[in-house]
């Protein structure tokens, strides 16, 4: 219970700090459209993480275990697919690196996309676990 609460507090704290940072930065300088895409990605990842943390905390309160054989299987399978997809993503980032000359943007975008790929893979693995 405590662990879930700490994770939730940390996530909410990080998200609020990030939003505050963007508000302050937008008053000092104009935000570029490509940066807006990255901010949106960060926002999506943060929102999904907060939603998952709240759900886990609620389930833990109900007396359910945090992990069981099903979640472990989904974790391993989706982890494998996310790893494969991330490799292709980094290859594409390398091939199309001329789109942005800013290395930090490319790296940050890549890391964020890896997070999104992880969520997507988990969703699809759950949908097709027993299907041939």
């Amino acid at each position: 219970m405590k662990k879930s609460l700490y994770i939730l507090l940390l996530l909410v704290g990080l998200t609020l700090t990030f939003v505050l940072g963007i508000i302050v930065y937008s008053q000092m300088a104009e935000i570029q459209p490509k940066m807006l895409i990255i901010y949106a990605l960060i926002g999506i990842v943060a929102l999904i993480s907060i939603f998952v943390a709240i759900k886990k905390m609620k389930e833990e309160k109900e007396g359910q275990p945090i992990e069981d054989e099903f979640t472990t299987l989904v974790k391993y399978k989706s982890g494998f697919y996310a790893y494969l997809a991330s490799m292709y993503m980094w290859l594409f980032i390398f091939l199309f690196r001329d789109i942005s000359s800013d290395v930090e943007t490319l790296l940050g975008g890549g890391i964020l996309l890896s997070g999104v790929i992880g969520f997507v893979c988990k969703f699809f693995v759950k949908q097709q676990l027993n299907e041939k």
Binding site: Q64, E67, D68, E69, F70, K126
Partner: peptide, 8 residues
Amino acid sequence: VRRETIVF
């Protein structure tokens, strides 16, 4: 187990 496991 988790309720999700029973659902699946």
